[in-house]
Design a protein around this nucleic acid. Sequence first.
DNA 1: ATCGCAATATGATTTCAATCATATGTTGCC
DNA 2: GGCAACATATGATTGAAATCATATTGCGAT
Lengths: 188, 188
Amino acid sequence: MLPDPYDHIPSSALRPLSGAVGDVVFHQGDPTHGLYVVQTGRVHLERVGPDGERFIIHRAQAGTSFAEASVFSEVYHCDAVCVEAGALIRIDKAAILAALVDPAFARAYGRQAAQQIQVQRQMLEIVGIRRAEGRVMAGLVAGLLEGSVIEFAARLQLSHEATYRALRELVKDGRVMNPSRGIYHLRP
Amino acid sequence: MLPDPYDHIPSSALRPLSGAVGDVVFHQGDPTHGLYVVQTGRVHLERVGPDGERFIIHRAQAGTSFAEASVFSEVYHCDAVCVEAGALIRIDKAAILAALVDPAFARAYGRQAAQQIQVQRQMLEIVGIRRAEGRVMAGLVAGLLEGSVIEFAARLQLSHEATYRALRELVKDGRVMNPSRGIYHLRP
DNA sequence: ATCGCAATATGATTTCAATCATATGTTGCC
DNA sequence: GGCAACATATGATTGAAATCATATTGCGAT
């Protein structure tokens, strides 16, 4: 039901919520209740700039959590806005802090966090590669091409056209196999 | 001495190491000993592609840790190569797992990890902004301009020239103040 | 004081990805 | 079977950032 470390939190600490488009889950400065898990829909975390512009800090998708750091702070430091209607579950921050006393939970939490940090570092390195060809190759090596090329392109922060072209170049250079339309994988 | 959650690990679990340029701290597939803290110098984490190309997964700088996820796995999944000579400290993975039993350590670890995840998510959003002007503005809002504009540009994955030009545009539009040469800050 | 070096700054040119356009293949559905 | 919707492709054009070039400023060392 809940993703990895949170599946052992007692259900008494969980509060299901539903969000319509535009609903504000919390405001910057609000006292923290805890973190949230997106079950369906999408939520944007935003900061407001000096001229009132909204800067997106994070896009939380179904199956992921957000505002984890709020467990360790007194107030939320950004706004959370529902951009696609869906269902959320709020997890009480006290329950997380209590669960961290359990070594099994602490270990699960640590493992999940360390792995997420590693994946994010790698993503930062990959999107930092300027040339589409190098970025696509790095993405392939990282195993980011699961599902459609369009999803792959979005992960790489590239247009799907540029991604298709880079894939073709890599195939032409013999660095990537294209056994059938839409199927690409590394030479083994 | 050691950064945030690791400063309470008993020194018996610490092993100081020195690395020269080109030294391999560990190889992909090696059994894990634990994570590392960079005290001085720089270390690259790399994966080897099918044609032997090296893909950088992460650049670890002085004052930061790397290979945290190795605490929870049996083998390293990438190479660690010293690219600037310096001193490292290896922290025994058993010591981390043992320390997680201590609720105070688990909480410190969780706080640090949650905050790092949040910062990295924000960085991914910022470098995903295509227009230099928007990226620079988002970087300013995020408080990334500490130190030189050159460092700021590197954080944003922009050339320093593009960063200077974007800053000038923002100043021209009145969105950024430039009280003196090299000093930029948001309008309050 | 002045020499050298790095940061700041900006102009000119080039490069490359985004965008726009268009076509074909694929899949699911009635 | 045929249609709609979408993924896969690729060509043409545009736009914006990288790169190259060149000053200028500021600072520390001598």
